[in-house]
Nucleic acid binder design. Sequence first.
DNA 1: TACGATAGTTGCATGGCGCAACCAACTAAC
DNA 2: GTTAGTTGGTTGCGCCATGCAACTATCGTA
Lengths: 165, 165
Amino acid sequence: MAQPTNLLRERTRAFVADAVSDSANSQVAFSLIELMNIGKRFNARQREQATVNSMLAKLANEGPLRSADLSQFLMLDPSTVSRHICSMADDGLVARTPDINDRRVQWVDITPSGREHLQTATRARVALFEQVMADWPEADRIALGQLLERFVTDFDRTIFDSEQA
Amino acid sequence: MAQPTNLLRERTRAFVADAVSDSANSQVAFSLIELMNIGKRFNARQREQATVNSMLAKLANEGPLRSADLSQFLMLDPSTVSRHICSMADDGLVARTPDINDRRVQWVDITPSGREHLQTATRARVALFEQVMADWPEADRIALGQLLERFVTDFDRTIFDSEQA
DNA sequence: TACGATAGTTGCATGGCGCAACCAACTAAC
DNA sequence: GTTAGTTGGTTGCGCCATGCAACTATCGTA
């Protein structure tokens, strides 16, 4: 396979620019689309882990959640999330505790074993990113981190808002 | 579902920082992981399209390719790619032309219809990103675009190198 | 000419996923 | 209090993407 060259990237950018009006938006959108594609093919290697890790990360961040919360966040069918939770509970990665006031609800939370699992997966990814950005200046890494964090936050809010509407 | 707050993000960052040593790397890695998770759950909605669009984008950028090239790029089994190519050829998105010198090889390329399909998908994503970054200053959008482009390039190169080894 | 290597395609099993149907529990109206 | 409707969550079922192994066809080479 031919390695991507500057010429090819120029062609790509021209193509994407064809699809949109604003060129500043087109470049960032093009890169984001490529990054999501990267995420997809990188996850393809460890398909079974992708959803599990995403769930574990969400639970690690935002304490106990209900199944419906995870379903909404992951944009997956409730049945799919339910099956994942069962499987993860069997593996000891999450624990389910029934709600006192509403016995239909079960609160799902990450276990110490789940945190360990998540940390291992996170370390692997961080190691890869370190390798990719090995010769980046520190300032650029910080800048990318800050911009990405804002993007992720705004993305979550945008999706959240549009789903409420 | 509770909307992400700064407090929660702080907790997340602390968790990821636990998993790595360098804090500058940890923030950018954390954001990148979240972005890949976003890509996954965003693609979950239109599952069948994700791989197809990724293939179409690759073909649009780098002219005719062999099935093995796409297989390596997408990190998918040759059989999977073969089936996708057949299906996409049936839909008129790609065309296969046999190689003159080596009759085992078939060169796959995107058709005008495929370009149209890709542009539609690209426009949809760009529209979403525009919505997310609606109130960003122009300079930040440009900066993110440039940093991401470098990251994608370096990522491709890193993966490429590690697969050659 | 014969044998190994390579490009690509099928047979088959696995697993994630969505939809629909379902059950249990809560709420409200009477 | 009883009944009807709603909500949270779980199964039944089929679909589809994927990987592995086996296969065919072609190429290169001894």
